[in-house]
Amino acid sequence: MSAVAELRRYFTETKRWLLVPVLLLAILPLVTEQYFLSIATQAIILGLFAISVDIALGYVGLFTLAPAAFFGIGAYSVAKLVVDYGSSYWLGFPAAIVLAVVIAVLIGYGPIKRRIGLVYFVLFTLAFGVLVHDFTYATTWLTGGSNGLGYLTAPTLFGIDLSRTVPYYYFALLAVVVVAGLLYWLLSSDYGDVLHATRQNEVRMRYLGYDTDREKLIAWVLSATVSSIAGALYVATVNVASPSLMAFSLTGEVTIWVVIGGLGTFFGPFLAAFGLTIFESYLGAVLPEGYLLILGALFIVFVFVLPDGLVGLLQRWRDGE
């Protein structure tokens, strides 16, 4: 076996290759300027958001149009506690998680238990997503309406001022790596296999004695909760929780990232979200209105020509096709 093949096996089979991107992200602050780093902070958080959506969309085939709603719920949980109640930033995270779990169960239980079809699920979550957005807009007394809730920054922890760019970058990176790592561990376990098998042949899984409704509901709640955590992490980077954080366009963007990255591939959506967010900031300087246009065109190409996404493309390339 050649050395290259040996090396490849060493990395692919043991997943040790994962250390490479994490290390690269870890040394990023040493080689870039502040402005880029603040974009990169948002990009890794949005990468986590994309992973969370991939759990519902890619792993169990629950086509949701409500991810932005849960992202926003996370962001507003933190902002509400800090801005309106003056309580601790850190309390925002458990609040975001609890609120997301409760709302996800309330919203997801009915459609999943009643096994409404794909089309109905899409429309149901669309209605919910728009509902949450409009509600946020309308209830000024609760959410600040169109002004949102601000201004907030991350606090000081162990003497480190997280409101500064570099510390918050590392904080976000650590949080994303921990949450994504836990998710990855969970999805690599038997539970992940059950989800994949459920998506491929739900009836067979039921005959085999699995409560597929329960598995799907758990995945749905997990997805919503991680979306909410991503939102909670994100809000300190923009300092204000505003309705745009739960707008339909964000749902659109994250859906596009997940498809371009590759449905059900975990790393693909992260990569696409990260890369395209960085791309957006660069393009913004040259062609401010072109980002969504390019994103949409790219998306159409992926849907009709490369439905397996980036990861599928890489796999085909690796398999020498």
Binding site: G61, F63, L118, V119, V122, G252, T255, I256, V259, E289, G290, L292, L293, L295, G296, A297, F299, I300, V303, F304, P307
Partner: peptide, 30 residues
């Protein structure tokens, strides 16, 4: 050109028309 190919696959149909929506709307706004 494309849509008739994805009638059997509602997910792709939905995603594809969603992409078209983004592109057309952005072109208009552009």
């Amino acid at each position: 050109s494309v849509l008739h190919r994805v009638y059997e696959r509602p997910l792709l149909g939905f995603l594809g028309t969603f992409g078209m929506y983004v592109v057309i709307e952005e072109l208009i706004s552009f």
